Amino acid sequence: MSLLNAEGLYAGYGGVDILRNTHLHVGADEIVVIVGPNGAGKSTAMKAVFGLVPIRTGRVTYRGDDITNHPPEQMVGRGIAYVPQEANVFPSLSVVENLELGAYVLRGPNAPRMEKVFEIFPRLKERRHQQAGVMSGGERQMVAMGRALMVEPSLLMLDEPTAGLSPRLIDETFERIKGINQLGIGVLMVEQNARQALAAADRGYVLATGENRYEDTGPGLLANPEVAEMFLGG
Rank of each mutant, 00 (worst) to 15 (best):
E86N: 15
N98L: 05
R140K: 15
A200L: 04
T68P: 09
D17I: 09
L221T: 06
H23S: 14
G133L: 12
T209Q: 14
G8S: 11
D65F: 04
E97G: 01
Q196P: 03
G186F: 04
V89F: 02
T209R: 14
V190E: 06
A87I: 02
L4V: 05
Y205R: 13
G41C: 05
V35C: 15
I31W: 00
L221D: 14
A11F: 13
G164K: 01
I55E: 11
P84L: 04
M230P: 04
A81N: 06
V35H: 07
L101H: 13
F118N: 00
L207T: 14
T68V: 07
Y82R: 11
L106G: 00
Y10W: 15
E229I: 01
Y62M: 11
D159N: 02
T44A: 03
P167T: 07
V26G: 01
P109Y: 05
V35E: 11
Q85W: 03
L169T: 12
E100A: 14
I18A: 14
R168V: 14
E175F: 04
P72E: 10
Y214C: 07
L19P: 13
A111P: 00
M145E: 01
G164D: 04
E97T: 03
A201N: 10
Q192R: 10
M46C: 12
E86Y: 05
V96F: 11
L93F: 15
M114L: 12
D171R: 14
G164S: 08
R59I: 02
E172V: 02
P91W: 14
T162H: 11
P122Y: 00
N212Y: 04
T22P: 08
Q74D: 15
L232V: 13
P54H: 12
P122W: 00
Y214V: 03
R123K: 14
P225W: 12
N110A: 13
E152D: 11
E119F: 01
E229Q: 14
H23A: 06
D216T: 00
P167V: 03
A48I: 08
P109R: 07
G36F: 03
R20W: 14
H23R: 15
P91V: 04
F231I: 09
P84Y: 04
L222A: 05
P167L: 00
G51F: 05
I55P: 05
L52V: 00
K116W: 01
M150I: 05
G137D: 01
G77H: 11
G186L: 03
E152S: 06
G234N: 15
R176F: 15
L188K: 12
R107E: 14
F231L: 13
V53P: 09
E97Q: 08
V83G: 12
I180W: 12
N110W: 06
G204R: 04
L183H: 07
Y205L: 03
G102K: 05
N5Y: 09
L198H: 12
F50T: 06
E152K: 07
I185K: 02
F118M: 02
L3W: 13
G184C: 07
P167K: 13
D202Q: 10
Q196S: 01
G39W: 02
A199T: 07
N21V: 03
V143E: 03
H129Q: 10
L52R: 01
A201E: 06
G36H: 02
A87F: 09
G27Q: 08
